[in-house]
Design a binder for these strands. Structure first.
Lengths: 186, 186
DNA sequence: TTAACCATGTAATCCGTTACATGATTCA
DNA sequence: TGAATCATGTAACGGATTACATGGTTAA
């Protein structure tokens, strides 16, 4: 029971179609959760059936019609209930970290390569998050925006995503330099 | 196909029973993955059947017998294969972050409470990781240990866990102070 | 004597991923 | 002409959580 609330939270500020939601959740632009398009269409159908969201058909020329969803009163109440319940603790679950755990028993050159690839990916996400944050706060300073802006929730979650990717990047760089130096000695 | 490799990686340096593994994975002491005891017993049975680990019965007085597992040649080869394959990207998936995404539409007092609780939890894990790292490197400095120590994999993954929890803590504290100040103005 | 710890499992359910399926439009 | 984008779904499978099940030992 977790994706439903992520979807509700994503639909709070704007009406979105399944396709639009999917793009956000798939690319991880919605840095607070991740899901495949298929899962979203299923979840949207369920949420609508339960009355937590409503969809309206939008007819388009030259491209397929789409359905835009927004959160209902019942949906908002469900979110309110969710935010009062105990969140489960969050854990790292990352293939790459498992690989590094085995570092002393596998080919270091492979690991260095993998860590390098992840670093590239992390840098791209950091750039993306920087741009998103700037777009949200406009010309205001961050401190000013967080004090007086109208929507700070998405900004705060984006800050978490940014810090997470910075953590990834630093750890990759550190690990590569450690493994490189040990290769030289060996 | 992800837990199996975490289990293999965990068994590289020491023979462990299902129960011991479960404690590590459950508390998140094994900071590179997380799993429930039930899942581990199933996975251990599977891995043994496939010949990637072997178990030996250890008879004990005054407490139930246990089975200690270690990685076989085939298991090591499987890990080697795994570290050469593409890891799937890692995403944040955290109830608390979803709650903060909805910050502008739900009760801020509740959020502040939740963030405070998570901060306490994060501090405890930071302490734990600090102690684990110290135990691993002994009297050596970190830099020295990473250059010349015999097992750096577990140390590096622990560093990732530490940085992750520090990121959690900082973000919780920052978010609390932002929400507090906005409450005052409202 | 009650709770916590040691020790191992099965079964049901739910959540998430991968594969399958369709079809129009726009840009290179 | 082929790839990317827009747009929405179903089905099969596999991974993860929760509930159920058992039973001895140790410390408060």
């Amino acid at each position: 029971m977790a994706l439903r609330h992520a979807v509700l939270a994503a639909l709070l500020d704007e009406e979105l179609s399944g396709y639009q939601l999917a793009k956000a959740f798939d690319l991880g632009v919605a840095n607070f959760w991740h899901a495949q398009p298929q899962q979203l269409y299923v979840e949207l159908a369920r949420l609508e059936k339960e009355g937590l969201i409503t969809g309206r058909e939008v007819v388009q020329d030259n491209r397929p019609n789409k359905r835009l969803f927004r959160v209902t009163e019942a949906g908002l109440a469900e979110l309110e209930r969710f935010t009062s319940s105990a969140p489960r603790p969050s854990f790292i679950r990352d293939d790459l970290v498992v690989m590094v755990q085995a570092a002393d028993h596998v080919d270091p050159a492979e690991l260095i390569r993998q860590l390098g690839e992840r670093a590239v990916f992390a840098r791209a996400k950091i750039d993306l998050f920087d741009r998103l944050l700037h777009a949200m706060r406009g010309e205001r300073s961050e401190a000013d925006f967080l004090r007086t802006g109208t929507r700070v929730g998405p900004y705060l979650t984006c800050l978490r995503g940014l810090a997470f990717e910075r953590g990834n990047l630093e750890w990759c760089e550190r690990s590569v330099s450690v493994l490189r130096e040990r290769e030289h000695r060996a």
